[in-house]
Design a protein around this nucleic acid. Structure first.
Lengths: 143, 143
DNA sequence: CTATCTGCAAATTCTTTGCAGGACT
DNA sequence: AGTCCTGCAAAGAATTTGCAGATAG
């Protein structure tokens, strides 16, 4: 997986610096989590103490551009980043999340039942590239 | 519709000031649009020239709390607000949007085909209250 | 009358950018 | 060597907050 991503990065004229490797490792180690830039900084500093927030933002941005990371907003006014389940391949995974309104826990939904809806929309003249679906409610613990 | 909302507001100890009425009118006149606080301010100043941005934020926030408005993020780092289609009733409408990656136009999708998916998730122990679905792609003009 | 609301400006929070020095390839 | 990258600090953008005066009910 890391190898696949590294190949992808090379194809994008991406220089592998210590800081970028650290950020990438943080994202790989936190698969399935949704980290803010500040959280990535904190974790990255354990390995690269001198790394600055600007570098973290620039790296996350670049990795998002090359579709290694997925960038989204849960709370508001703040981006969060997560690794694509299949980062490194061409095919993107479609993300669904359930956000618990009580404890804030975010759960992934694996099913992707939207293709029917997408077809319906495309028949009206649109071309759908991606989608973003979030459910709000209560998790089993808080219900 | 405005009457229904007014009743709802009264139930929430909401004082009807000139500024709040203006903001509410702006939202009613722009049904189906997704306005940022700055855009609401601009439109509101036509009727209440002295209104300040803080009041706009505070009013939008309050109307969101009482489920008259729906607050979401399209671009990033910026909230947008729109009137619930059925603001004033207990039942909320589920919003779907298609965002054109070229021209930025936002189109509403009326169908709601998610109830099947919601049932599936609830059978796993969750309780779903609401959802937020966005499609990214190209509109008929830009395709 | 009194609690709530308003406008202003300052403060916060998150993100981006300019720049001079440093590091990949 | 030359281009791209880094950290710092300053700038920007969006939103929130403290406060003293104003207003709805």
């Amino acid at each position: 997986m890391k190898k696949k991503i590294t190949i992808k990065l090379k194809q994008n004229d991406y220089k592998m610096t210590e800081q970028r490797e650290t950020v990438l490792e943080v994202m790989l180690k936190n698969r399935g989590k949704h980290l803010s830039a500040e959280e990535v900084l904190e974790k990255a500093r354990k390995k690269s103490p001198g790394i600055g927030i600007a570098t973290v933002y620039r790296t996350l941005e670049k990795l998002t551009e090359m579709e290694v990371l997925y960038k989204t907003v849960f709370e508001g006014g703040k981006f969060r980043y997560e690794l694509y389940d299949d980062a490194g391949s061409k095919q993107q995974h479609h993300h669904h999340h359930i956000i618990c309104l009580k404890c804030g826990k975010i759960t992934e939904v694996q099913e992707d039942l939207l293709s029917g809806l997408e077809q319906k929309i495309e028949s009206q003249g649109f071309k759908i590239i991606d989608h973003d679906l979030k459910f709000f409610g209560y998790c089993p613990n808080c219900k």
